[in-house]
Computed example of a mutant assay.
Amino acid sequence: MLIRSLLTPVNKLTTLGLNDTVKSAIDIIEENGFLSLPVTDDDKFIGFLSKQYVYEKFFESGEKDFEAFLQKPVSDFAYMKVEPVKDTLFIEEAADIFLNQQVRFLPVVNDFGKFLGIVTQKALFRVITKVYGLEDAKIVIHSDDFAGTLLKISDVIYKHGANITNIAQMDTEVMGIQEISIRLVGDNLEKLPEKLQAKGIKVKEFIPAKNN
């Protein structure tokens, strides 16, 4: 999935222009409870401006008149905390940027550098939750034969009439044991652990769906 599907378009954002005063920018930030705002020049993304950054620059400047300081243009304070990403970026790559850059949103541009909007952490986590079925029931199984066990599991789940929404495998690094986490939907799923164990499958844990 590409991040363009998670985009908050620029026409739904509050943005700042280069010639706006810092005072007007801070007023908008405070009135709306924003942490920062994107700065644009026509259809180009220039950077961000945050209230914290403005205050830091004021104290660093040694100036005495804060009101006069606030009359400076936004262009003096726009900073690029993270480079814009293309709208063709995969969500997995966006997640890696969020993790390593520690930013709350990513500016998104097209192949011509036109600013399209932003992708927020919240939007990304929402789609990850949906894709990986994190609201669905979960069965955790331990096995030293992933392929063989998965075949047995699939057969039991199919005969029960349930559907698998996601499968994740992790090496426990203990005696070759693999942990298999299966997300699934269906009726009477609480009966599945017993059916799986009857087939010699070691069920470590069963967690009902969150809406149950």
Rank of each mutant, 00 (worst) to 15 (best):
Q169P: 13
G47P: 02
A168E: 08
T165H: 00
P208W: 02
P193I: 08
F48R: 10
F45R: 14
I207C: 12
L196V: 11
D111Y: 01
F58H: 05
I28Q: 04
L106H: 05
K199N: 04
S143T: 06
E63L: 08
L116P: 05
K199H: 04
K138D: 11
I139K: 05
K57A: 02
A95Q: 03
F112C: 12
V108A: 04
I153N: 03
G148W: 12
D42C: 12
D187N: 15
E56H: 04
I180R: 05
F115R: 07
D111H: 12
K191A: 14
Y53W: 14
E205V: 10
D145V: 09
L49Q: 06
Y132D: 07
L70M: 05
Y55L: 14
E205A: 12
Q169I: 14
A25Y: 08
L124D: 15
I139E: 09
L151S: 13
P9I: 04
V39C: 06
D27L: 12
I3A: 01
S61K: 07
E179L: 01
E30R: 08
K191R: 14
N212T: 08
N11E: 13
K210D: 15
F34R: 13
G117E: 03
I128F: 09
G117Q: 00
V85K: 03
I164S: 04
H142K: 09
N11V: 10
V39W: 08
L35Q: 01
H142S: 06
A68C: 10
E67H: 05
K72S: 09
A209C: 07
E83T: 13
S50E: 01
V22Q: 00
E135S: 12
A168K: 10
L189V: 13
E179Y: 02
E31P: 00
T149V: 07
S24A: 05
V131I: 11
L49S: 04
K191Q: 13
P9L: 07
E30G: 06
F115C: 06
K152C: 01
T15E: 13
P38H: 11
A123S: 15
A78S: 11
I28L: 11
V140C: 00
N166R: 00
L116D: 02
Q71Y: 05
N212Y: 07
